[in-house]
């Protein structure tokens, strides 16, 4: 028996998107497979790794621990929506400049988390940066250059504001 589908509307990266999803469709899968936004990655599906972090009404959340139907009508920002057109955001540029990524799989989750962190706290201390990214796993970089990139992004944002 086919599962009941729910029609939902999301504003993703500023664009109104509709999808028909069963109640159990994870937001991560909805973004990736129903809407084709594969920049959001899935690393554990139990909320620990942080790869799937997206912004829900501006706040970072785990898209693998959120059902798509629950956030019907809300605004989502994914890694695809962070750049200003062709120009990467300060956070994205800082990650490139500081070699804050290697394989890139965890990177979208970090970028979303850090974007929200710096919006709330434009000049975080070392401790605040560590606490801010403490829920995101990276297996490649050892985090050192990610931490550096967060500080650098704060600098770029201050320079450009």
């Amino acid at each position: 028996m086919p599962e009941q589908a729910h029609e939902i509307t999301l504003v993703v990266n500023g664009t109104l998107r509709r999808a028909e999803v069963p109640g159990r469709r994870l937001l991560s899968d909805c973004l990736r497979h129903d809407l084709g936004l594969t920049g959001t990655h899935v690393g554990c599906e139990h909320g620990v790794c942080g790869c799937c972090t997206v912004l829900l009404d501006g706040e970072p959340v785990r898209s693998c621990l959120t059902f798509a139907v629950t956030v019907d009508g809300r605004e989502i920002t994914t890694v695809e929506g962070l750049a200003d057109g062709e120009r990467m955001s300060p956070v994205q540029r800082a990650f490139a400049e500081c070699h804050g990524l290697q394989c890139g799989f965890c990177t979208p989750g970090f970028l979303c988390t850090v974007t929200a962190l710096l919006r709330e706290n434009p000049a975080p201390t070392e401790e605040e940066v560590l606490e801010g990214i403490s829920g995101n796993l990276c297996r490649c970089t050892g985090y050192q250059n990610i931490v550096k990139a967060v500080h650098r992004a704060a600098e770029i944002m201050a320079e450009e504001s």
Partner: peptide
Amino acid sequence: VQRREDPRLLTGRGRYLDDLGP
């Protein structure tokens, strides 16, 4: 030298296995 992979990976345009074959 800054990595040439990065612009793609930083903007969600990387192509990992599960991103293929929708």
